[in-house]
Nucleic acid binder design. Structure first.
Length: 222
DNA sequence: GTGTGATCATCT
DNA sequence: AGATGATCACAC
């Protein structure tokens, strides 16, 4: 079953809102998709299911999920208290020198310019998890300032070849984490002594505390 | 092999 | 329990 791409952000949001409160087993049934018993071997199952349901087109290409709308969709697993259970993957971190020269050009910034967050409630059987109320979001001035500061610091460390600094402890909101099939997978970088070196590929992730603050800001009872 | 979708597994 | 580092599946 294929769903046509939404013609506007309003339509996209309306579609997402119509799914809120449903469980994933229901949605999978509507789409003719089998529900796995757990996500160990289907880590992207929820994300792919929601993309299908909302009419995303980009697939695994390096584009927003809704290219014509400039919107990226991300599911966000949350616990009973409404706090994100995991960090959120944003995109691959370029370690090879093809780094954007400014935050304005950064891939991370474009990815996060407009995001449709879809909270997924529960941590039990995938089919029993509930689709939450969606949030069509753009970073506030303060949020963008934090992201920019983190990105600048992390990018600087990459640019200087300080490979030992490419660890998850850095960054208030944005962090670098391994992003590969396994730890033996390597990519080439030039280290701080100008020598070629091999390191595990990294990706940019949003800390759960950051995505949690986004949800809290928009859904907290005033 | 790289990028997209993420969660798992382990350590502190 | 929360964070860090490791890992799984699929498309191209």
């Amino acid at each position: 079953m294929t769903i046509a791409p939404p013609e506007s952000q309003a339509v996209l949001l309306a579609r997402a809102e119509a799914l809120a409160g449903r469980d994933l087993a229901w949605l999978a049934g509507e789409l003719g998709v089998a529900v796995p018993d757990d996500l160990r071997r289907d880590k992207g199952w929820i994300g792919n299911l929601l993309e299908l349901a909302l009419g995303a087109t980009a697939g695994s290409r390096a584009e927003p999920d809704f290219p014509h709308l400039g919107v990226e969709m991300k599911t966000l697993p949350v616990d009973a208290r409404g706090r994100p259970r995991e960090s959120t993957y944003v995109c691959t971190a370029p370690l090879d020198g093809s780094i954007a020269r400014s935050w304005e050009d950064a891939w991370v910034r474009h990815k996060l310019a407009r995001v449709l967050w879809i909270p997924i409630l529960g941590d039990g059987h995938p089919g029993e998890r509930i689709i939450g109320a969606p949030l069509l979001w753009s970073p506030s001035a303060e949020e963008e300032a934090v992201l920019k500061a983190d990105w600048t610091a992390l990018t600087e460390a990459i640019g200087l070849g300080e490979t030992w600094q490419l660890e998850a402890r850095k960054g208030k909101a944005l962090q670098l984490r391994p992003k590969a099939a396994h730890a033996r997978e390597m990519t080439w970088v030039i280290d701080d002594e100008g020598e070629w070196a091999q390191v595990n590929p990294r990706g940019f992730y949003l800390r759960a505390s950051f995505t949690g603050s986004i949800l809290k800001k928009h859904f907290a009872i005033g």
